[in-house]
Design a protein around this nucleic acid. Structure first.
Lengths: 335, 335
DNA sequence: TGAGATAATGTTACCGGTAACATTAAATGA
DNA sequence: TCATTTAATGTTACCGGTAACATTATCTCA
């Protein structure tokens, strides 16, 4: 039954003390007479007492809680990209006695919730995934002054936020160079739709490497960043009769779609076409064929996000405005 | 800059009114003199005022917030299973002016956060995914008396919770019967590890159908409910030299692992072995080969969860203790 | 033995809002 | 014109905790 949780005062009444003594049992038990302490602890157990979080917050307690901001734009709710990353972050936070809660930004509703939480000091800090969610949000965060770390996109220096990202340019560079080393000369690039730094950086690496190798022909398609997007883009590419011997993809999701499309067109991978993705999602290893991809060190990203944030919360100012982690090419069956 | 948000009182001071008038501007603007109203609204805008959520909650306001309880046991953080389901639920909630927040139950830390939220009335209701997370939690919920709906597992009547689940028995039955209709006689079943109803129900259907068709030989393997688990189980199955012509899997994740394992063993699908999964995860359509699976109507599950919960919150008592939705066999390339 | 330290608890005020009731001034009406 | 609505705002108390300070009673030790 919904036994109404008692308040401090009710406990105090039953114990024959003032509510301040009961409060002390919670916050400074060492300052309470052992006998009284025992009695009150028993009473609290008995009456199923739990201090009201909101009251403590209002009175100035620290929530010991970190908010994760994500936005579900794929069928995975929390894009698989975040998987390891979030897990690594939460594990570290838990070890430091911090809890966490997830905000799924899908509409204005969720944003209002989110600002309610920050302005009410329900959160000590924030880890925002995928960089700039939107400018309104970022400026709202600035106003609230809540410690924040950005993960997944490199924040411009003007953002004044610590950001953790991967070396998009370097990763893409290595991938395209690898394709060239395998003899590919007609390399298509399927990019996602977006204005974020990662889109520019990977695209630029693709173009630069082609130029550096005197390959004139750029074959670029733009599509949604999803498996279906990859399928559609590859279908168009095939239909267009543009010759191509390899496809570099902005993301693993797109790459998986590409593999599917090629398979349906009876093209052999990697013999007819080589395919490389970007991200290093764990489950791409189990795809048929297993996907060659530019892996981001997501576990490290998550850990760094958590440790940096806690440093900021602790008042230490970080010397750099962020870190850019190296990527590595994971060569498997698709290229 | 972190412009400290002002309080009601500071606004009141600047406006030359009592803080109650400012409070009225927020809650009952129609009762305020239009002129004063305008002046205060301007001031609030100017000073970037935002009422503190916790203070309002403490004073008895409704949070208009629903909590989602999930637990990330796969690399997807929020298992892909929830994808459509969560999305459908959140969309409905948003349309009804409810916000939502996600609790990722991975450790005791998160549980404490969670109970802090419920006992402090920070949540109007709860949607708990994957049925019984653990008994402690369920009993804590009962104590708090918070309206709750369970999704994904059929709750026993004793649980006194409304639950939304799929017809596990019926789904598995159709799957196994389909395999038999295709001529399969040595049908393996790879189940997940767990004590939840779905495990029993699907397993029972498998056994019953075999018996009903006079097939004596049950081939059952148990493994982790993940792609890797599927790979391991299928590897064992292959190594054991047990003859089999088809594999029915507890989940799509397991089935994907099975496909991978069979592929590496150079077995042809579906010619050598037929494989069927369970869940109907969207992206299994794009796997190579595309997966035949027992689809759950996840969108409907999400919607029902949301609408039922709001009914409960609204004080209407639901006549049934839950709904069990029908499943459908989605026949694709793997079987 | 009495002043000062110490331990244990109580009192007050406050965190930032809210509803309920009280007050004031202007508007209405017989 | 004076009692009576009505509109607009103010006052008080409370939601459930907290820290800071005040008050006791007991304990030390010169």
């Amino acid at each position: 039954m919904s036994t109404k949780n008692p308040t401090l005062e009710e406990i105090a009444l039953k114990a024959g003390v003032s509510k301040m003594t009961v409060s002390r049992v919670i916050n400074h038990p060492e300052s309470v007479n052992p006998e009284t302490l025992g009695k009150i602890l028993n009473l609290m157990e008995e009456m199923n007492f739990q201090p009201k979080f909101v009251a403590r917050i209002l009175a100035g307690s620290k929530p010991k809680t970190i908010g994760f901001v994500v936005h579900s734009n794929t069928d995975f709710i929390i894009a698989p990209f975040y998987g390891e990353c979030v897990r690594a972050a939460t594990e570290w936070l838990a070890s430091q006695n911090y809890r966490h809660v997830l905000f799924n930004l899908i509409d204005s509703q969720s944003k209002s919730l989110f600002t309610d939480y920050t302005t009410s000091s329900l959160l000590d800090g924030l880890i925002v995934f995928e960089g700039f969610v939107d400018d309104d949000l970022i400026s709202a965060l600035k106003k609230s002054g809540i410690p924040t770390v950005l993960v997944g996109e490199q924040a411009p220096a003007t953002a004044e936020y610590f950001s953790i990202s991967s070396d998009n340019y370097g990763g893409a560079q290595v991938a395209v160079e690898y394709l060239i080393s395998k003899g590919c000369r007609r390399i298509a690039y399927i990019t996602g739709k977006g204005e974020k730094p990662s889109y520019f950086q990977r695209k630029k690496a693709y173009s630069d490497v082609l130029k550096a190798n005197s390959i004139e022909c750029e074959i670029v398609y733009e599509t949604e960043n999803s498996i279906e997007g990859g399928i559609r883009a590859a279908n168009s590419l095939i239909d267009s009769n543009t010759g191509f011997d390899s496809i570099f993809c902005f993301s693993d999701l797109i790459a998986l779609g590409v593999l599917k499309s090629l398979d349906e067109a009876d093209m052999k991978i990697p013999d007819d076409v080589r395919v490389i993705g970007f991200d290093g999602l764990k489950f791409t290893k189990s795809f048929i064929p297993s996907l060659t991809t530019v892996s981001q060190n997501m576990k490290l990203m998550g850990q760094l996000a958590a440790t940096s944030l806690l440093k900021i919360i602790g008042g230490k100012s970080l010397t750099k405005s962020g870190v850019v982690l190296p990527t590595s090419l994971t060569i498997r069956d698709s290229a």
